[in-house]
Design a protein around this nucleic acid. Structure first.
Length: 289
DNA sequence: AAAAGCCTCAACCGCGCTTCC
DNA sequence: TGGAAGCGCGGTTGAGGCTTT
């Protein structure tokens, strides 16, 4: 014997919501709130709908703070990063993207973002270049010269590297800092984090987001495990390549396919999620200085 | 212009978890 | 303490719009 249905399916309307139904639901919730009981709500609101259907309609469409429209590059990266860390926990991912719903993100991932990333990886595998292959050709300014050892100062015994106007740097060391204008932007990690890469695609600082578990030793959070890195949009990674090594090439198509099919999700990464997200937010603050 | 195929996304479904009595 | 009710989540579906042939 199965579970009892939440409502009498023969007496409730199914399918797309009409504008009249939307209005009824919105009006009722504005006046009375949800009352903490979705099952009872449709009857009180005069709707011939299942409570679950009302809840879904409100949360995914009618709520006033819902954000419609295109996902930004930053949202893309955040989704990808979180998916890499925790798998298809859409509600957790949605909680980090204000105005976006889990359903929205799930649809976006399944229909667009996944393909976008797959295409990006396959394209880059066809033009594979060696790691740490520095290409000044990808830098916006061909006049830019990478800092020499004499131009490197230190803070707390760590080197501080100047960047060009666009934030490009050339770094190849285990622990480093980047000084950009008056802001000290610290990228500090353990030996593994040597491959961390900072780039900019739109005039602001970004990290290249990593794939895999959060690295507790990496102060910037969650950017580095194994040797897998990638940005979400081609433009972003193309420029990242210009500043430091072609680390995106280390992420294989097979690895990514595996990630998607297994919904990589470990308790270890879950424990670190909040820290990870805080770090991402901290990073955002730096990005928009 | 029409048919076929593809894509998007709102909505549904079922199940696990939590809360309440 | 156990069972019922409700909530919330992730997977899936299908209608409708769009693109291609």
């Amino acid at each position: 014997m199965g579970r009892a249905p939440c409502c009498d399916k023969s007496k409730v309307k199914k399918g797309p919501w009409s504008p009249q139904e939307d209005t009824k639901l919105k009006d009722y919730i504005h006046k009375n709130g949800t009352g903490g009981n979705w099952i009872a709500l449709p009857h009180k609101a005069g709707l011939k709908r299942c409570g679950k259907s009302c809840r879904l309609r409100w949360l995914n469409y009618l709520r006033p703070d819902i954000k419609h429209g295109e996902f930004s590059d930053h949202e893309d990266r955040l989704i990808y990063t979180l998916f890499s860390s925790i798998g298809s926990r859409w509600s957790v991912i949605a909680a980090q993207l204000p105005g976006r719903t889990d359903n929205d993100i799930k649809n976006y991932w399944n229909t667009k973002l996944k393909k976008k990333i797959m295409n990006f990886i396959s394209t880059n595998h066809q033009t594979e270049k060696p790691l740490h292959h520095l290409e000044s050709v990808n830098c916006p300014s061909s006049n830019y010269s990478y800092p020499t050892s004499s131009s490197v100062t230190t803070v707390d015994n760590h080197p501080v590297l100047p960047s060009d106007d666009h934030g490009y740097i050339n770094v190849d060391m285990e622990t480093y800092r980047v000084k950009d204008n008056s802001t000290l932007f610290m990228l500090e990690g353990d030996a593994q984090a040597a491959d961390d890469c900072s780039s900019n695609s739109d005039g602001r600082w970004h990290h290249v987001y990593g794939s895999g578990a959060f690295d507790a030793h990496n102060n910037m959070g969650g950017l580095k495990t194994s040797n897998s890195y990638m940005g979400v949009d081609g433009n972003y990674c193309e420029k990242a390549r210009g500043c430091y090594g072609d680390s995106t090439m280390e992420f294989s198509l097979e690895e990514f396919k595996k990630l998607i099919s297994t919904n990589l999700c470990s308790s270890n990464t879950n424990n670190n999620l909040n820290v990870f997200v805080d770090e991402l937010k901290a990073e955002e603050n730096i990005m928009y200085y």
